[in-house]
Amino acid sequence: MTDPSRPSRPDPRIATALRDLFGIPESDLRADAELDADLHLDSLSVVELQVALEESTGVRINPEDPSAIRTLGDLQSVLEAAIATGQPAFPSLKLSEDR
């Protein structure tokens, strides 16, 4: 899903959330960075990030297939689509399967 032609600079809202929530520096934020393997975000952390992004953008982030979001570029595409759709944030979220 990642578009390799995308600019490597991440959306500042994503960069801010990743720094504030998890201490991930902007220098680690390549578009092809995998949320799991490269940024070490477990499923719980991805939902934590989602809640923070919904709060900072005010729109609902509700991808059709959450498991398709593997890289930072994927996440950025989903965020941009959500902003374009403009659904208000904070309907119920998919619950994590972490114990």
């Binding site: 719980l44 919904e54 979220l93 619950l95």
Partner: peptide, 13 residues
Amino acid sequence: TGGPGRVRPYLAI
């Protein structure tokens, strides 16, 4: 104030 979707998942831990 925001509904169930605003409760952070880290609450569980």
